[in-house]
Amino acid sequence: MKKRYLIPFGIFMAIMAIFVLGLYRMGEDPNFTRNVPSVLIGKQAPKIDLPDLFDQSKTVSSSSLAGQVWVLNVWATWCPECWREHAFLVHLARNEGVKLFGIDWRDDAAAAKRLLVDKGNPFVAVGFDPESRAIMDWGVYGAPETFVIDKQGVVRWKKAGAMTRELWESELKPLLQKLEKG
């Protein structure tokens, strides 16, 4: 066999190797395909004014947390990762003093309330957003997504995907401690 016939074969194998590596990377990181960089980091946080999940005639507003370090969590009962992270969010609110503001996105209000009653409510307030009006301002495209907002109202951090103990220890906790001092 002539050597030059090996060249297309070699190129083919190289392309296959790239595909296989790419697939493995996707497999390891559940958020791989979703990692769209947020344009909000370092910018003023969009204001949230939404109906209160527990009483939709009332309004909950992010301005009630102005001047504090707070965390925004976008969640829904249709999102499996949200169920998975829920217990940890409750732990953060009860034992670590994290101020969580929730947005219940495109959800069934009754199911959402039942979840919070049964499994605990980690949120200072929960806004109900059935038409993606608030979450679009935040560039949210999946659930759960978590943001950190500092005392000046600037978005400092964002994560698409569930909150975990590892993520808390390695990124969120140090950041919140730093922001609380500043």
Binding site: T33, V36, R106, E131, S132, M136, Y141, G142
Partner: peptide
Amino acid sequence: LVCQNQNLADSNAELAQDMRRQ
């Protein structure tokens, strides 16, 4: 943003519906 290889016109993801409405 949900099905990232589609535009808003082609996608029927719920977020795409809301972005079309917007």
